[in-house]
């Protein structure tokens, strides 16, 4: 008795899929942007002269990289309300995903900071650059050029990790897959469709990242 694939059985549910894909994309892109910002801050903390800041930054990275995202999502969604901090499923998932991803982003960005030769810091100081000017004009442009490709890996990791948000009631693509699979008992069909949707979403973000990178790191006119 073979199993007959029937994608026709899934047609009635495809309307919900568009909304679910939008939710996955929105959640992932917001988490990516926020976690790059927080990760940059943590990476700078880890390079700070203050021992306390270095320690706090290191602690954050190790806690976030060594705890499962699912546990963090449960804590944000189920435990924080006990302390009076109540958030919607989407916001809970966004916070959990951002906190988790920022741990990885911080390490990627720190690697980029380490790659800037120490001589440049000394040279900038000798030229009278302030700390802000140093980072704005000399360090960060090099950092982002160095880490732009590895950052792409983490972007994709965030999109795929967003599938856990269904555990805290977010209606994203993994939620759609579970809901339609359980309704129709056609899990194989929903697995295949969800895989294709994630692949397309990851490629959209990836191609977007490449396009932005080309624009961001274009050669200055003088060198063309």
């Amino acid at each position: 008795m073979p199993y007959y694939f029937s994608f026709r059985s899934i047609y009635p549910y495809l309307g919900d899929l568009a909304a679910a894909a939008q939710a996955t994309l929105l959640l992932s892109v917001l988490a990516i942007v926020l976690s790059v910002a927080i990760g940059s801050g943590v990476a700078l903390m880890r390079r700070s002269d203050s021992r306390l800041l270095r320690f706090t930054g290191g602690l954050y990275v190790e806690v976030m990289r060594n705890t499962p995202l699912l546990v963090i999502l449960y804590i944000v969604y189920f435990a924080l309300p006990q302390l009076g901090l109540r958030m919607s499923p989407f916001n809970s998932a966004l916070i959990g995903l951002t906190l988790n991803s920022a741990g990885y982003m911080a390490e990627i960005i720190r690697a980029g900071l380490v790659a800037v030769p120490p001589g440049q810091f000394e040279a900038a100081a000798s030229q009278g650059f302030t700390r802000v000017q140093l980072y704005r004009h000399i360090v960060l442009p090099q950092v982002f050029r160095t880490i732009y490709a590895p950052l792409g890996n983490q972007f994709i990791a965030v999109i795929l990790a967003s599938s856990l948000a269904s555990a805290v009631a977010v209606e994203e693509v993994a939620s759609w897959m579970q809901t339609v699979g359980s309704s129709s008992f056609r899990f194989f069909e929903t697995f295949v469709i969800a895989a294709v949707v994630y692949l397309v979403l990851c490629q959209i973000v990836n191609l977007g990242r490449i396009a932005i990178g080309r624009w961001l790191f274009r050669q200055p006119e003088a060198y063309r």
Binding site: S6, S9, S184, F185
Partner: peptide, 9 residues
């Protein structure tokens, strides 16, 4: 059990 589910098992 329901009819929709019984199309696949």
């Amino acid at each position: 059990r329901n009819v929709e589910r019984s199309t696949s098992i």
